[in-house]
């Protein structure tokens, strides 16, 4: 509670999960977004796997503040089966690939497929081509990214966590989309939205139910 600020009452929480192969810059992207106004040598932190930042969208009427709660996931293949535990109930999902690795785009495609099959259909998915500062090493063209995003009807951005290109734009636009699609809502509607995002208590751990049956 100590992190509360006087404006907190109007903050709308939005859970954003970040998916993608390891080393594509998932956590750097989140860090760049969250640490924007921080002094450069701000090193001490409690890790980069859970981060949050509130952003005011002043051109909305009425103006709203979204509190992005960013959940990082482990990208290694062997931990892939654990991902559903992280993206469950997420308002948004960033599927990140590295523009200098064609392979990471293929991984991103399979993440998109998985989200289509398993995630809440309301979850807003953003395809993110990171490391766009490394133009000379580019293996994935902007067109390829755009085509995939269009085919899957996703938001699309090329970003650079290193120099900050498009990072804020990405989150601002994601926030607006979440509001306009009613995935998150301000004021009185919020509680109903929150409960909509959640599964009923009985179905919260379907996985462990399955295990139980297998174990008999």
């Amino acid at each position: 509670m100590a992190s509360a600020s006087p404006t907190r009452a109007k903050d709308i929480p939005a859970k954003i999960v970040v998916l993608g192969e390891s080393a594509v810059g998932k956590s750097s992207l989140a860090l760049r977004f969250v640490r924007r106004d921080f002094i450069p040598n701000q090193e001490a932190t409690i890790g980069a796997s859970f981060l949050s930042r509130s952003v005011s969208l002043v051109d909305e009427s009425p103006p709203v503040t979204i509190k992005f709660e960013i959940w990082d996931t482990a990208g290694q293949e062997r931990y892939r089966a654990l991902a559903p535990m992280y993206y469950r109930g997420a308002a948004g999902a960033l599927v990140v690939y590295d523009i200098t690795s064609a392979d990471s785009l293929r991984k991103a495609e399979s993440w998109i497929g998985e989200l289509r099959r398993n995630a809440d259909p309301q979850t807003v998915v953003v395809l993110v081509g990171n490391k766009c500062d490394l133009e000379s090493m580019r293996q994935v063209s902007i067109q390829q990214g755009q085509d995939l995003a269009e085919k899957e009807e996703l938001l699309f951005y090329e970003t650079s966590a290193k120099d900050g290109t498009n990072v804020d734009a990405l989150f601002t636009n994601l926030g607006k989309t979440l509001l306009s699609r009613g995935v998150i809502a301000s004021g009185v509607d919020r509680r109903s939205t929150m409960s909509r995002n959640l599964q009923p208590p009985g179905s919260r751990t379907p996985k462990s139910e399955q295990q139980k049956r297998c174990d008999c």
């Binding site: 040598n41 932190t45 796997s49 990208g75 290694q76």
Partner: peptide
């Protein structure tokens, strides 16, 4: 002393979960 050490990069979920 305080030479830059970039810990942030090492403490992502890629590292923390394993």
């Amino acid at each position: 002393a305080p030479e830059k050490h970039n810990l942030n990069a090492t403490l992502s979920a890629d590292d923390v979960l394993p």
